[in-house]
Amino acid sequence: MEKALWYLLAGTRGGANRARIIRLLDDRPRNANQLAEELDVDYNTVRHHLDVLLDHDVVERGGDDYGAMYFLTDRFDHHREEFETITDQIE
Protein backbone atom coordinates (compact mmCIF):
# COMPACT_ATOMS: atom_id res chain seq x y z
CA MET A 1 0.00 0.00 0.00
CA GLU A 2 2.86 2.43 0.73
CA LYS A 3 4.13 2.18 -2.86
CA ALA A 4 0.61 2.67 -4.20
CA LEU A 5 0.17 5.78 -2.05
CA TRP A 6 3.47 7.23 -3.28
CA TYR A 7 2.37 6.63 -6.86
CA LEU A 8 -1.16 8.00 -6.33
CA LEU A 9 -0.14 11.10 -4.42
CA ALA A 10 3.36 12.03 -5.55
CA GLY A 11 3.88 10.23 -8.84
CA THR A 12 1.00 11.62 -10.88
CA ARG A 13 -0.47 15.02 -11.72
CA GLY A 14 -3.71 14.30 -9.88
CA GLY A 15 -2.02 13.56 -6.57
CA ALA A 16 -3.02 16.82 -4.90
CA ASN A 17 -6.70 16.32 -5.73
CA ARG A 18 -6.55 12.71 -4.56
CA ALA A 19 -5.08 13.81 -1.25
CA ARG A 20 -7.87 16.38 -0.90
CA ILE A 21 -10.49 13.71 -1.63
CA ILE A 22 -8.96 11.39 0.97
CA ARG A 23 -8.97 14.17 3.56
CA LEU A 24 -12.65 14.95 2.93
CA LEU A 25 -13.59 11.27 3.12
CA ASP A 26 -11.65 10.98 6.35
CA ASP A 27 -13.99 13.61 7.79
CA ARG A 28 -17.14 11.75 6.64
CA PRO A 29 -18.40 9.67 3.69
CA ARG A 30 -19.54 11.64 0.67
CA ASN A 31 -20.78 11.01 -2.86
CA ALA A 32 -19.00 12.21 -6.00
CA ASN A 33 -21.26 15.23 -6.42
CA GLN A 34 -20.63 16.41 -2.86
CA LEU A 35 -16.89 15.99 -3.34
CA ALA A 36 -16.97 17.93 -6.62
CA GLU A 37 -18.86 20.80 -4.99
CA GLU A 38 -16.62 20.97 -1.92
CA LEU A 39 -13.41 20.75 -3.95
CA ASP A 40 -14.68 23.06 -6.72
CA VAL A 41 -13.59 20.44 -9.26
CA ASP A 42 -15.51 19.06 -12.24
CA TYR A 43 -17.71 16.05 -11.39
CA ASN A 44 -16.07 13.88 -14.07
CA THR A 45 -12.63 14.71 -12.69
CA VAL A 46 -13.72 13.61 -9.22
CA ARG A 47 -15.18 10.39 -10.64
CA HIS A 48 -11.88 9.68 -12.39
CA HIS A 49 -9.92 10.15 -9.16
CA LEU A 50 -12.40 8.01 -7.23
CA ASP A 51 -12.05 5.23 -9.82
CA VAL A 52 -8.26 5.35 -9.45
CA LEU A 53 -8.56 5.27 -5.65
CA LEU A 54 -11.03 2.35 -5.92
CA ASP A 55 -8.62 0.43 -8.14
CA HIS A 56 -5.88 0.81 -5.51
CA ASP A 57 -8.13 -0.14 -2.55
CA VAL A 58 -7.92 3.29 -0.92
CA VAL A 59 -11.67 3.92 -1.07
CA GLU A 60 -14.73 1.73 -1.35
CA ARG A 61 -18.17 2.50 -2.71
CA GLY A 62 -21.44 1.89 -0.95
CA GLY A 63 -24.74 2.07 -2.80
CA ASP A 64 -25.72 2.35 -6.43
CA ASP A 65 -23.80 4.25 -9.08
CA TYR A 66 -25.65 7.55 -8.85
CA GLY A 67 -25.43 8.88 -5.32
CA ALA A 68 -23.05 6.13 -4.20
CA MET A 69 -21.21 7.04 -1.03
CA TYR A 70 -17.45 6.66 -0.81
CA PHE A 71 -15.58 5.55 2.31
CA LEU A 72 -11.92 5.02 3.15
CA THR A 73 -11.04 1.32 3.32
CA ASP A 74 -9.80 -0.51 6.39
CA ARG A 75 -6.62 -1.21 4.43
CA PHE A 76 -6.05 2.52 4.04
CA ASP A 77 -6.66 3.04 7.76
CA HIS A 78 -3.81 0.63 8.49
CA HIS A 79 -1.52 2.82 6.34
CA ARG A 80 -2.70 6.25 7.46
CA GLU A 81 0.77 7.11 8.83
CA GLU A 82 2.30 6.59 5.39
CA PHE A 83 -0.36 8.88 3.89
CA GLU A 84 0.52 11.61 6.38
CA THR A 85 4.25 11.17 5.75
CA ILE A 86 3.79 11.39 1.98
CA THR A 87 1.51 14.42 2.08
CA ASP A 88 3.87 16.21 4.49
CA GLN A 89 6.74 15.66 2.05
CA ILE A 90 4.90 16.78 -1.10
CA GLU A 91 3.18 19.88 0.30
Results as ranks from 00 to 15, higher is better:
Tyr70Gly: 03
Leu53Pro: 00
Gly14Trp: 11
Glu38Met: 13
Asn44Ser: 09
Leu25Ile: 03
Arg47Leu: 14
Gly67Asn: 08
Asp42Ile: 02
Arg13Gly: 13
Ile90His: 10
His49Val: 05
Phe76Met: 06
Glu91Ala: 15
Asp27Gly: 05
Pro29Lys: 02
Glu60Gly: 07
Gly67Tyr: 08
Asp26Thr: 06
Asp27Phe: 13
Val59Ser: 03
Ala36Tyr: 07
His56Thr: 00
Asp40Trp: 07
Lys3Ile: 12
Arg80His: 11
Leu25Glu: 09
Thr73Glu: 00
Leu39Phe: 10
Glu2Trp: 02
Phe76Asn: 01
Arg80Gly: 00
Ala10Asp: 11
Glu81Gly: 06
Leu50Trp: 14
Ile21Leu: 13
Glu37Ser: 11
Glu91Met: 12
Glu37Cys: 03
Arg28Phe: 08
His49Glu: 15
His78Arg: 15
Arg61Trp: 00
Ala68Leu: 04
Glu38Ala: 15
Asn33Trp: 07
Met69Trp: 00
Asp65Glu: 15
Gly14Cys: 11
Leu35Gly: 10
Gly63Cys: 02
Pro29Ser: 11
Asp27Lys: 12
Phe83Ser: 03
Leu24Gln: 12
Ala19Gln: 13
Asn44Trp: 14
Gln89Ser: 15
Asn33Tyr: 08
Phe83Trp: 06
Val41Glu: 11
Ala36Arg: 04
Leu5Cys: 04
Ile90Met: 15
Asn44Ile: 05
Leu54Trp: 00
Arg18Phe: 06
Glu2Arg: 15
Glu84Cys: 01
His49Ile: 05
Gly15Val: 10
Asp65Gly: 09
Glu2His: 12
Ala16Met: 12
Arg47Lys: 15
Leu5Phe: 08
Leu9Asp: 07
Ala19Leu: 11
Ala19Tyr: 12
His79Ser: 03
Asn44Gln: 14
Thr87Gly: 08
Gln89Arg: 14
Arg28Leu: 01
Met69Ile: 03
Lys3Asn: 13
Arg80Trp: 09
Arg61Ser: 07
Val52Pro: 09
Glu2Pro: 05
Ala32Phe: 05
